[in-house]
């Protein structure tokens, strides 16, 4: 059987952020109802943890089955810290889809653009439930590819009254302002200091920062903080003083990203996590107790969302002419 091959530029033309946001919401709901299999990802260390082999990279294998789509797949993705300095992309990924009823490979496609899209959509969908407003101010830390898709995804769900963006490279922020001025209804403010992007309804951090730089006292009541980085961008007090912690996948978020250090030192554990995003979207738990609650949300990213988006891409791609395919089994 032929396996469809889909490249990054084709994916960009096949799918919109609006479709991704809708699909991610359905998959969160399915997760809350146990209709999704999403085993904890397996990491292959190529120097990003142990130093051997010393290539500054690592790959995560993220398989999943999605009930409402009846689709199974695997994203294999990694990042190489030294790549941008060599003029190479940080992320590298291919996603595979199989027919879950018979194991035939339906598609192999680029997984990097899917990742940017679903990462944006995950926090926007979570915010739809966690933030009881339709018009918001948004603070964005990190103006790269993921910063763009975060702002785009939020603009599908909210009226953004004002977007404040901070990046250690001011030119990146200026570029984001140029790129998104049509898509965001309110003004885009480029910030010189991190603190300037913090007095907002929703904070989203998508940086490679290895040390905390967002402080507890900057963040106001009633806000939601989305910590998306691989390391910890918010200080310990901000996490520990939040009224609730919400995650997408309990196992993965305690061992990677913003909660890792506090989890390893025993200051945060499973019992400190109030709910998963799936629990809230499926209506199993109320999103918040009071309007004043400060919520710390870690949607670290699940293969389930990648397989969701890849399945949408495949359903569109299979009906268009001229795409390449390959029969691996012949």
């Amino acid at each position: 059987m032929n396996t469809l091959l889909i490249k990054r530029s084709q994916i960009k033309n096949l799918i919109t952020m609006k479709e991704v946001v809708q699909a991610v919401e359905k998959t969160f709901e399915d997760m809350g109802r146990d209709k999704v299999h999403n085993p904890t990802k397996a990491h292959l260390d190529l120097g990003d943890i142990s130093g051997w082999p010393d290539y500054s990279g690592g790959m995560n294998a993220m398989p999943a089955y999605i009930g409402w789509l009846d689709s199974a797949g695997l994203k294999w993705i990694g990042g190489w810290m030294d790549n941008p300095g060599k003029g190479l992309p940080y992320l590298s990924s291919v996603t595979l889809l199989v027919d879950p009823s018979n194991g035939q490979f339906k598609a192999a496609m680029d997984g990097t653009y899917l990742t940017d899209l679903r990462t944006g959509a995950q926090s926007a969908v979570a915010a739809k439930y966690l933030m009881p407003k339709k018009e918001i101010t948004m603070g964005l830390y990190g103006a790269g590819a993921q910063g763009h898709t975060q702002a785009e995804a939020f603009s599908e769900v909210f009226q953004i009254k004002e977007l404040r963006v901070f990046d250690i490279n001011r030119n990146a922020s200026e570029q984001l302002k140029t790129d998104l001025s049509e898509k965001i209804s309110g003004p885009i403010q480029v910030c010189d200091k991190p603190v300037e992007a913090s007095d907002v309804d929703v904070i989203v951090t998508v940086t490679h920062a290895e040390k905390p730089f967002i402080r507890d006292e900057w963040v106001k009541q009633g806000s939601v903080v989305f910590a998306m980085g691989s390391f910890q961008e918010c200080d310990d007090d901000l996490i520990l003083n939040s009224d609730s912690i919400v995650v997408d996948h309990v196992g993965q978020t305690l061992h990677r990203g913003a909660l890792k250090k506090l989890s390893e030192s025993g200051r945060i554990s499973e019992k400190d996590i109030y709910a998963t995003i799936g629990d809230i979207v499926a209506g199993e738990k109320p999103p918040r107790k009071t309007f004043r609650d400060r919520i710390f949300c870690v949607p670290i990213g699940t293969g389930a969302m990648d397989v969701t988006v890849a399945s949408l891409v495949y359903e569109k791609a299979r009906n268009i002419e001229g795409l390449q395919s390959f029969d691996f089994t012949s």
Partner: peptide, 25 residues
């Protein structure tokens, strides 16, 4: 390896199959 159970042992989904992800260096 990371297994994805598609009904080999789990009851859902009912496909009598599994997929194992096996990365290596």
């Amino acid at each position: 390896k990371v297994g994805l159970d598609l009904g080999e042992t789990a009851s859902y989904p009912p496909y009598q199959g599994f997929m194992n992800a096996m990365p290596a260096y």
